[in-house]
Every structure is written in C-alpha cells, then in structure tokens.
Design a protein around this nucleic acid. Structure first.
Lengths: 184, 184
DNA sequence: ACCTGAACACCGTTCAAGT
DNA sequence: ACCTGAACACCGTTCAAGT
C-alpha cells in the first residue's frame, strides 16, 4: 500500500540548517532533524544519504544564498564592486556563522560544496579583481581578496581577534589596503 | 599499593597529534590514543579531561611550535620579516595540515588554544606589520596579514582553489601585494 | 596511585516487518 | 512507497573493583 511522504529533502535541509545555526554542529544529529520534520531517524535515509550528505546539502544551500548575495553586491566600478562584495560576505557570515564555516571547511569528500556553485561564486569575484588589477592578474587577485575576507571572517567568528581594537575598523582598513595593493 | 604510571600527558598529546595528522579528526578517538600509549581508554582520564581537553592540548602544542617557527623567521627589515613569516606559516601549515586547521577553529570553549600562546604568536607579527605600515596601524595591519595568510592556507588545505593556476605563484602575488598595500 | 572491565547514554546506520 | 522498532557497531565517559 503506497503511502504519501511525511517530509521532503527541502524540509530536511531547512530543519538541519536551522538546528546547525541555533545549536551548533554537535547538535546536528539525525534524530534532532528527524524529530523536527516529524519522522524517525531511519526514515531520513529515504531522502538523504546519511549525515555527511545532509551536511553537504546544507553547505550547498548556504553557498547558493551567498552566491546571490554576492551577485547583488556587484558594481560597474571594480574597486567599488570588491568593497561591496567584501562587506556582503561579512554580513552573510555574521548572520550565518555556522553555515559560513562549512563553506571552505576541510570536510570529507561527501560533504563538499558543489563544484558548480563554488565556481559561480568565484567567477564574480575574479572578474571584479581582474578589473582592478589587470586581467593578467585576475585569478591571483581574486584569490587574494577571497583569502583575506575568508581569513578575516574565520578569525572573527572564532573569536581569534583577542588583542582588543575595533573589528569593524580593522575590516575597513583591510578593504582599503587590499584595494590599494591590487591597483597596478 | 601505589603503581608507577604507564604513560604521561606528553606521550598522550604526541600520540594524539600523530593520529590526527595521519588519519584525520574522526580517527582521533580516545581508544586509538589509549592503544597507542599502551593503556585502556578510561585510564586517559587520569591525565586529561576527556577528548575536548586532548584536542585543546594538541592545538596548544602546534601553536607553540608555530610560535618558534615564526620567531625564527623574524628579520630586522619589516617587509622582509612579513615575507619570511608568511612563508614560514605556509610551510608549517603544509607540513601539519590537520593541526594547523585546529589553530583558529571555532572550537568549543574547552578546546581553545591558550590565550598566552595566541598573544605571543600575534605580537611578533603585529610588531613587523607596525614597522611597515606605521605604529598607529600596527594592530590593523597585523590583522590584515594574518587574515590573508590564514585564509589562503585554509583554502589551500581545503582544496578550495579549484580554478587551476599556480598556487605557489598566487601566494607570492599575495605577499607582494599585501606588502605594497601596507606601505604608507 | 594507577589501571581495568563493565556499564551507560548517545550516536549513525541497516533491515525486516508493517501499512 | 514510505515509515518504524529493533538491532548493531562505535563513540565518550563514569565508576566500583583490583593491584
């Protein structure tokens, strides 16, 4: 006797992301997710391939969201585009710290962010960076910007800036000097 | 009847770090560590306060090592010092990827790197950065350098640079442009 | 003083049985 | 076709009992 589904992949991923953000990665258990969507843990295996697969899907979900945030921050002027995108990443990371931490995490293969999503995300930045530094340096320049923003956010989210000072201003300083360093 | 110890904190931490580096964080179980030092898992609790405490001690061990590596890379000329330290961090991270990933990880409180170790590590870099950018910008400049190096290494270790190109040259480019951006 | 086996709670995962 | 309880392997952790 066929039965109608009680839940869906989308509901599972949304519940997982909510739990991850609210209670941290240790609390992201299949039992917690199952209970949030109204089934028992074994039933989740009808839609996802275990915990690793769930984590990957959550990371993809966040990457897609960050992708549209970045696209919206794009500008005609390359320096303005880089500034706006840096701030957009920071805002996203502060609003979604646990999901953000998943984006470039050294996760097992089956938990990795989708290749295509990653490439799309990178392309927007590389184009702006190339506009500023010259197209022959587009890739290197894009990597420099992304590495700095990501490193800054990783450290800010981890509470690793422990020598006092104004973090907002440190970020502004960084944006200024990255742009300056990239100019030809 | 008193009995002589079969192991020590140092042996436990060393074994843990070896297992972490060789087999990854999931393989870093108390049973594996216990077996490596020749006791049973419950005996570890005589010397360490559980898994979280072990992870913290491994992170501290790596932080202390990175600290002396950085101190050895110091130079009189600030720009040369920053270049040498950036390369020293990269060499350390490539040689100790899993331990490096622990250094600024958003870990639970009890797994955090020792405050003092972190401060020592930061001070050397902040001094060199101040020498280059001017002492009024020392902290901001130090944070910019550390954020970039750490972000770059996080991404390199995670395999997040997936658009081809020469990673060594991307790192050199970054060092050059960071130094340029910091000059007054 | 240190070490151990046994036990407990809690995971992820599999699977036969139910509807 | 989907869901479930029961079971399994494997964790971290506690503790009474041994030497």
């Amino acid at each position: 006797v066929p039965t109608p589904p009680k839940t869906s992949v989308a509901a599972i991923v949304a519940a997982g992301r909510r739990i991850l953000e609210a209670e941290g990665p240790e609390a992201l258990t299949l039992q917690a997710v199952a209970s949030a969507v109204g089934v028992r843990a074994p039933s989740l295996y009808k839609r996802i391939n275990g915990r690793g697969d769930l984590v990957r899907r959550i990371a993809n979900d966040a990457a897609a969201e960050l992708g549209s945030v970045l696209a919206a921050a794009n500008r005609d002027d390359p320096a303005e585009a880089l500034r706006a995108m840096a701030h957009a990443v920071r805002r996203f990371a502060l609003a979604n710290p646990r999901a953000y931490a998943l984006l470039f995490a050294p996760l097992p293969e089956d938990a990795r962010v989708d290749e295509q999503l990653n490439a799309d995300l990178a392309a927007t930045i590389v184009r702006a960076a190339g506009g500023l530094a010259g197209s022959e340096h587009a890739l290197d320049a894009g990597r420099m910007v992304v590495a700095w923003v990501h490193g800054f956010m990783t450290m800010e989210l981890a509470g690793a800036f422990r020598l006092g000072g104004d973090i907002d201003r440190a970020f502004e300083f960084g944006v200024d000097r990255i742009v300056r360093g990239l100019e030809p």
